[in-house]
Amino acid sequence: MPVERLETRIARRYGGLSHKLREAADYVIAHPVEVATRSLRSISASSSVSPATFSRLARALEFDSYESLRELSRQVVGAQIVTFSEKAAQLRAPGEGEAAMLDRQVGACMSNLAALTQEIDRTQLQTAVDRLAQARRVMLFGAFASHGVAEHVAYLTNYIQADWTVVSHTATPLAASLETLTPEDVFLVITKTPYARRAVLATRMAREQGASTLVLTDSHACPALMHADIGFCVPSDSPQFFSSYVATLALMETLVAMLVSQSQDDVSEKIRLVEERNERLGDFWAD
């Protein structure tokens, strides 16, 4: 069984925390090793947050005590030791220049994938798949770089079902599309730091319409999570100036694969028919 991510637990409740509790939560996320290994008094001195506030945070996160929170942090840190050492090995560049950059980038991606595999809530993952499978329609929205990921996933799912659509990032189509959502629909949002304002507001509006909301992001502090029925914080670390989408793509493709595997329909026949129509339309190069 994978160890539950402390960040996942915090993300689910972050929107309802007070300013002081958010400060404590941010410190816990940013300093997992210190929380796991140092006393509460020492953590309080380093963070300028009172011990009582950390204790209140633990209760707000539904732990029996701060010590229970600390124990989960220890387990998560322990589970990550191999991952961190592997990442360090990957980042040891053999030399300067492009080869070293490749090692750094691939090493970061491998670390993100390892963290995703170890830390994701498998029960929540299955719940997300079930909601997507039962939905009358799935509407995807990704602003900026996330838009391309949404397009990729919609392309894959349209081989097996025609009710996944990508909402345009322009103003009128998004507003009009949100108005059509019902409690039978799922609104799936992909957003990374810095978070698109429209992604946050659209998630809130979709929930107000009664639709199920599914958010894929990169931090417990993402404001869209407070409007999410299901949220995933996907590792997106990168040595570059941009966030990495490798782990996010892996998660999205896993969702599609799980939908296919548990479908009661003849998925192979659907895919065959789509491929046949592609061939008749001459969509792909043929000698």
Score class of each variant (00 low, 15 high):
residue 256 V to E: 01
residue 169 H to Y: 02
residue 182 T to R: 15
residue 208 E to V: 00
residue 199 A to Y: 05
residue 227 H to Q: 11
residue 172 T to N: 12
residue 245 Y to D: 07
residue 263 S to W: 03
residue 238 S to N: 11
residue 179 E to G: 09
residue 204 R to N: 09
residue 186 V to C: 15
residue 280 R to Y: 07
residue 184 E to L: 10
residue 186 V to M: 06
residue 231 G to A: 14
residue 238 S to P: 07
residue 218 D to P: 07
residue 251 L to H: 05
residue 270 K to Q: 13
residue 212 S to P: 04
residue 240 Q to A: 15
residue 212 S to L: 05
residue 265 D to H: 11
residue 226 M to K: 15
residue 254 T to Q: 11
residue 267 V to W: 02
residue 151 E to N: 09
residue 251 L to D: 04
residue 155 Y to E: 10
residue 214 L to Y: 03
residue 149 V to G: 05
residue 158 N to V: 00
residue 231 G to Y: 02
residue 285 W to S: 14
residue 277 R to P: 01
residue 185 D to Q: 08
residue 264 Q to M: 11
residue 150 A to K: 06
residue 239 P to V: 10
residue 217 T to R: 02
residue 284 F to G: 03
residue 150 A to V: 05
residue 279 E to P: 01
residue 150 A to H: 01
residue 190 I to R: 06
residue 142 G to I: 01
residue 257 A to I: 04
residue 238 S to E: 09
residue 240 Q to C: 14
residue 172 T to W: 10
residue 238 S to T: 09
residue 209 Q to I: 01
residue 160 I to W: 05
residue 146 S to P: 04
residue 237 D to Q: 15
residue 255 L to S: 03
residue 286 A to R: 15
residue 257 A to G: 12
residue 210 G to K: 12
residue 270 K to H: 09
residue 254 T to I: 07
residue 176 A to H: 14
residue 158 N to A: 02
residue 191 T to F: 06
residue 182 T to W: 10
residue 159 Y to D: 05
residue 181 L to I: 12
residue 246 V to Y: 01
residue 253 E to I: 00
residue 275 E to M: 01
residue 269 E to P: 04
residue 236 S to E: 08
residue 172 T to A: 14
residue 154 A to G: 01
residue 172 T to E: 13
residue 258 M to V: 05
residue 174 L to V: 08
residue 180 T to H: 11
residue 192 K to R: 15
residue 262 Q to V: 13
residue 145 A to K: 09
residue 266 D to K: 09
residue 228 A to F: 02
residue 162 A to I: 02
residue 184 E to H: 14
residue 230 I to W: 03
residue 260 V to F: 06
residue 282 G to E: 10
residue 240 Q to F: 06
residue 146 S to G: 08
residue 157 T to S: 00
residue 163 D to H: 13
residue 251 L to W: 03
residue 185 D to S: 08
residue 179 E to H: 14
residue 218 D to M: 08
residue 246 V to C: 10
residue 252 M to E: 01
residue 170 T to Q: 14
residue 260 V to Y: 00
residue 221 A to L: 02
residue 283 D to A: 11
residue 246 V to G: 01
residue 275 E to K: 10
residue 162 A to T: 12
residue 196 A to T: 01
residue 182 T to M: 11
residue 191 T to H: 05
residue 146 S to E: 03
residue 239 P to H: 08
residue 206 A to T: 06
residue 185 D to H: 07
residue 232 F to H: 04
residue 210 G to T: 08
residue 218 D to E: 11
residue 171 A to Q: 15
residue 286 A to I: 10
residue 237 D to Y: 12
residue 278 N to I: 04
residue 170 T to S: 13
residue 178 L to I: 12
residue 197 R to S: 13
residue 146 S to K: 03
residue 206 A to Q: 10
residue 274 V to E: 08
residue 232 F to N: 07
residue 196 A to G: 10
residue 149 V to S: 07
residue 158 N to I: 04
residue 265 D to G: 06
residue 161 Q to G: 07
residue 239 P to F: 05
residue 256 V to Y: 08
residue 152 H to E: 13
residue 252 M to Q: 07
residue 253 E to N: 14
residue 191 T to Y: 02
residue 146 S to M: 05
residue 222 C to I: 02
residue 244 S to M: 03
residue 206 A to H: 03
residue 146 S to A: 15
residue 220 H to P: 04
residue 260 V to N: 00
residue 191 T to C: 03
residue 174 L to I: 11
residue 179 E to T: 15
